[in-house]
Nucleic acid binder design. Structure first.
Lengths: 121, 121
DNA sequence: ACGTAAATTCGCCATATGGCGAAATGGGGT
DNA sequence: ACCCCATTTCGCCATATGGCGAATTTACGT
């Protein structure tokens, strides 16, 4: 029950859900998620660690940057079922689609540039 | 997205989840849910109306009593997928099992008696 | 019509949650 | 060794949430 509630609570905030949907099939750096959601990095950090505690994402550190991705390999069944449900429910969602478009733009900017100046500049 | 979040928020409280699991395969009167959860009836009422808004339960009025049940017939897909996931995740949950046992006891008491004196008396 | 009683609605309180900015942390690069 | 800078942690604030009890609503049964 605890684990299940951790998952449902993690999924009950729109910014966390958007982040999770943005992580479909790719990993993203924190600064990219900040760019996508338009929130302070401290807020994003809190969101992502909540998702991590619910086993919905994995953290990978690469130098100064931290990347988040959906769980790879030995996935907790609780989390994988939740992600499957999430995807089925929101694959065609309007907001999610718009985010997907924005993500493609954000990905064109090299990480160094995106982080360093703090935006699209 | 709104609908999805309504569902995840509804599922992110343990008392609501317990109520939903208690409604597997049967309908229950509000007073029976009060008895199961050990909460004030006003609190249970609030919980149930939140579940109803998320389309996870239906309300049926019968005389002075109000019964809740899982959606019948033309079920919103959003809700039915959520309920399937819920059941798969928690069918073997320890708390849910204990509730199931208690429910069987509560069901032995006629509704008139359960409501009228306010408990097992 | 009137009383009774189940359920809901209404205040109210305590705690949880989501947000920011400032300070702390930790990995390069020079 | 030192600085830089992405990320996290720490305070702090505003709002949301879950809980209760009191008041209101609604529908039977006299």
């Amino acid at each position: 029950m605890r684990g299940f509630l951790a998952v449902t609570k993690a999924l009950s905030d729109s910014n966390r859900v958007r982040a999770l949907m943005a992580l479909r099939g790719r990993e993203l750096c924190v600064c990219q998620i900040v760019e996508l959601l338009g929130l302070a990095s401290s807020t994003v950090s809190k969101h992502m660690s909540l998702l991590e505690q619910a086993r919905l994402v994995e953290r990978r550190k690469n130098g100064r940057w931290v990347y988040y991705r959906r769980p790879q390999g030995k996935v907790h069944k609780e989390a994988s079922e939740a992600l499957r449900w999430l995807d089925e429910s929101l694959a065609r969602d309007r907001d999610v689609r718009e985010d997907a478009k924005r993500i493609r733009e954000v990905l064109k900017i090299p990480v160094e540039e995106l982080c360093s100046v703090g935006g699209g500049k």
